[in-house]
Design a protein around this nucleic acid. Structure first.
Lengths: 226, 226
DNA sequence: GATCGGCGTCAGGATCTCGTCAAGGCACCG
DNA sequence: CGGTGCCTTGACGAGATCCTGACGCCGATC
């Protein structure tokens, strides 16, 4: 139902959370250190992060900032410290909620529900179908139609197209595209974009060499025009 | 800075919150009962609500639901009850956060900041469009329209225009322009500015030699006039 | 009236960026 | 174990953008 990333260095807590979360139908990934957390977050794309502050390698706020550099995913902080200074620091670093150990599992789950509800409410319930002169994109069904026939897209192609269509009309920077589709470590692999944009155009544009919908803004990024 | 509605039946708590919040530049409205809270919320349009659960007239979840019927404003619940059932009920009713009394003022303020930050990040619906007699600048989409047609700008041109438009009406020093667009090492390459301002005027101004919107302040810098 | 500094204008060549094709590597699946 | 689809990487021409120098204009100053 929801992808949750659990970050804690105590295996029994990780285990307890994993059991409770999977029992409620969530998909769970785990990390035992801060660096692992950042790495896993990039590939797993969690919809919410549960983060313990007492990690062995990195400071808690460092992990929060590392995530906030490229994502707005809700972060619920766990900590044994009841000191209010820690709470303030974590919340101001970008955390969404702060729960002190020991915590009630039902309370944590309620806070998690609240965080997910907020995040999904924030994503505006826009039209799931966008139509251009040449093709049709169904964001909900993850399908593209061209002249009635379905066009097959690879996961990467779809990731790019989806991001552009969701920001239709707006310019999307190449950095943003790379970070959101490939992950934060790929922010400067601009060559990937050129290759995949060419592929998308070949599949979707009537005149791939003269694109009318997938437009390049040299030096800045790309734009989807209806 | 931010409009806050404080709802509590204990006058000393209301008073303490009002003092702390106004000291930080927030605008505060208060209510002592649930019905009053709902009424005041409708007229005051708070950007965040701090709500005590132990109100004399209405049940706490009833107030939350009454608010959630028409607004998504962040609600931070205060309560003397530490029972986790109450927390779950309040959070699932639509509250955003739950703080148990007695609470630290700095923690509450940090949670308030977190809630406001989230809400403002979630609502990017602001019009970032600036219109002049001759052309229109859309800061979010990075687009410029002139007589209905889109004008293509290079990254450098856009960087200058964006900086000037964001400081519209104000004088922007040439040093600042150069440093923010080209980088700190280029603070004295004033020739660049002359070239690019001329290009911008040629693309945007009806009479490039008589600029009305991209104005030069000799010896100092440039100014964008609407 | 001459001089000087700041500004606007223009255009060509250097430099960066983009599109395109194709080949290699890797995982997955039958 | 071979095949297939997908992602990565390299090379190169085409195109867009940027830098640079030359020149003329204007107002201020001497």
């Amino acid at each position: 139902m929801t992808r949750v990333l659990v970050v804690d260095d105590e295996p029994q807590i990780v285990r307890a959370l994993r059991i409770n979360l999977t029992a409620r139908g969530h998909e769970v990934a785990t990390a035992l250190t801060g660096t692992e957390a950042l790495r896993v977050a990039a590939s797993f794309r969690p919809e919410v992060v549960i983060l313990d502050l007492g990690l062995p390698d990195l400071d808690g706020t460092a992990v929060i900032e590392g995530l906030r550099g490229w994502t707005t995913v809700p972060i619920i902080v766990l900590s044994a410290r009841t000191d209010s200074g820690d709470k303030v620091a974590a919340l101001d670093a970008g955390a969404d909620d702060y729960v002190t150990k020991p915590f009630g599992m039902d309370e944590l789950l309620a806070r998690l529900r609240a965080a997910v509800r907020r995040a999904s409410a924030a994503a505006p319930g826009e039209e799931a179908v966008v139509e251009t002169a040449a093709f049709t994109v169904d964001l909900a069904a993850k399908k593209v139609l061209r002249e009635g026939a379905e066009v097959h897209l690879t996961p990467t192609e779809w990731g790019i197209l989806e991001l552009l269509v969701r920001n239709r009309g707006k310019l999307v920077g190449q950095k943003q595209l790379l970070q959101e589709v490939w992950g934060p470590a790929y922010a400067s692999e601009t060559h990937y974009l050129r290759v995949y944009l060419a592929q998308l155009r070949r599949k979707l544009e009537p005149r791939p060499s003269r694109p009318r919908h997938l437009v390049t803004e040299a030096g800045m990024g790309y734009r989807f025009e209806v």
